[in-house]
Nucleic acid binder design. Structure first.
Lengths: 191, 191
DNA sequence: TATCTAATTAGACATTAATCAAATTAGGAG
DNA sequence: CTCCTAATTTGATTAATGTCTAATTAGATA
């Protein structure tokens, strides 16, 4: 993870109101007005903070009629909090830019003619490229069960469990209560 | 750990310059001017950032003649980074205020007549009180070897290894390369 | 269509904070 | 004592940001 992203994450947590929002959301989903009430703040203020939290991928939301329920993405919280510890540990600080031709070469090396995954790349960069490829067969906005995800991944490679975990770790997907959902591309660790 | 302390920690990391300083110090100790040179900033700016880092206990320093070598306290980095994950998990969010009579009662329960430690308290609050008592026999500013610390702790309780680890985790002491040093009281998790 | 509620946007105000230049302090070395 | 170097303090400037009120948008329902 690049340094500026680490800074962005910590900027988001560098505010008491947002920490309190996180503490609230740990107990379960809440809608905006409820958060505003509990913290004695106005709805616009909550909107402001939610958009900050959303920018770094900490928030997932679900509509129910007119009201939006916000919930916490604990996987992102965990991986971002750990990022500061692995600065300079080789993996994290490499240049993450991938050209189109590099990308094509990597996919050519790891994807067989019939579209299966030969092996899971050990190198982080190559693994990310492969994951971003796998994820193309999933639909944005759709909710998947764990079984659906596993079956889908198994159609590429027998070690579906590793692939599934990698999709979460690198923020291609969001998981909560056994339900999986694609994250927007700007959250993927590839970018 | 209380919410405001978590906020303070993240504020300190919410700056690119300070993250870069941390990245530099991960490779080893450096003096002020060296940091200023590597980051193309002026010495006063570095002083400013070092004092911010010091406020949350991330920095230890050693003088050699005229120049001060700063180094990173990775234990603090680790425990503070983890704090955001355990908000609301029982342990962290309890009221940490301890009155003098409470303190006396706790010590009376866990310290025998001849000054030994009966058992290591399971409750966090009581454990902290006991640790703050043990640490009274250590001298501030003095550098201890691991053996010295172990021997000292063993004079209170046979499980010296647990006590030693607890002293680090709760920031009563700082450890680097097998050398131990007392932290200033304001860093102790008790306060 | 009209209405109601939740959420967001826009704009203003106040506060915090990063940086630098200049002056000062601290500790050694000659 | 005098100089030298590293670190710090002070004061000023600029940029970023949390919060509010007022206005607007979005979606659902009657």
């Amino acid at each position: 993870m690049q340094l500026t992203r680490i800074v962005e994450f910590h900027k988001v947590l560098a505010d008491l109101t947002r920490i309190r929002i996180i503490a609230l959301l740990k107990q379960g989903p809440l809608h905006g007005q409820a958060i505003a009430g509990k913290l004695s703040l106005t709805p616009p203020t909550i909107t402001h903070h939610m958009s900050k939290l959303r920018e770094v991928g900490l928030i997932n939301e679900r509509r129910d009629r007119n009201t939006i329920y916000f919930s916490l993405n604990e996987d992102v919280l965990e991986s971002c909090a750990a990022a500061i510890l692995s600065i300079g540990n080789g993996e994290g600080n490499m240049d993450m830019f991938v050209t189109e031709s590099e990308r094509a070469a990597i996919l050519n090396n790891f994807i067989t003619a019939d579209g299966k995954l030969k092996t899971i790349p050990a190198q982080r960069k190559k693994r990310l490229v492969v994951l971003s490829h796998l994820v193309k067969g999933l639909e944005f906005g759709k909710i998947y069960s764990e079984k659906e995800i596993s079956d889908y991944l198994r159609s590429y490679h027998p070690d579906y469990a590793t692939l599934r975990r990698e999709l979460i770790i690198h923020q291609f997907m969001y998981r909560k209560d056994g339900q999986y959902e694609l994250n927007p591309p700007e959250l993927w660790s590839l970018h």
